[in-house]
Amino acid sequence: MTSVRDIPTQRVGVQAPPAARSVRLTKVFGEGDTRVVALDAVDVAFRAGQFTAIMGPSGSGKSTLMHCMAGLDAVTDGHAHIGDTELSSLNDRQLTMLRRDKIGFIFQAYNLLPTLTALENITLPMDIAGRRPDQAWLDTVIDTVGLRPRLNHRPSELSGGQQQRVACARAMANRPEIIFADEPTGNLDSKSGADVLAFLRRSVMEMGQTIVMVTHDPVAASYADRVLFLADGRIVDEMLSPTRERVLERMKAFDRQPEA
């Protein structure tokens, strides 16, 4: 199989440098009997303006890959880069700044601070940085997620899908270089999930956003430009222009021969 790095990205910006990449990224948890190699020398690149889905069986290392790439967790070996920045060379403060300025996050749940309104949640990263939000961009984002009537509501007054859309808006509002989303639709019904995914898709198409999304759902994966398949801490396959059927097909193959 060809190396992931050699595969040219489709659609947008063929010549653009990767928004994030890893070099022989290795993550080991525990020692001795409890030693788990969550990532095994992973080489991966996420091109700017591309929507990548990461799939794989439970425990295959998807979340770990995301955490290491986003500077949320230290790597055991190898390197992770966001743009030109090598993460292992940064101290805690610099990492914090990096996350604040260059990365957006969407988690599966509990994305929002219950004490803040939807709008305050959206602008939170900029508030933390002490920056004024770019009002025009903010309006664009808010209209894209369709939350204008709900801006002054608190999370407890929003549905799960609306909360996730607020989280998406927050991730976007800061114009990060890359957004990491860990099962953003995992807790949503299919309609709300579709809204969120449609929004992510649009932000890639219309705003050139780079998104990396972990998911278990072939439908969700079909919104992406490409799908990476992870198993046992290694990237075992990749699929461009995925459709639900092809992803489903590929996953069945996993089930038959898990060590693919």
Partner: peptide, 16 residues
């Protein structure tokens, strides 16, 4: 705890 984790993830530093 989780809120604090979220705040840290989206860029709040320890001092803040």
């Amino acid at each position: 705890t989780r809120e604090i984790g979220l705040l840290r993830a989206i860029g709040m530093d320890r001092r803040q």
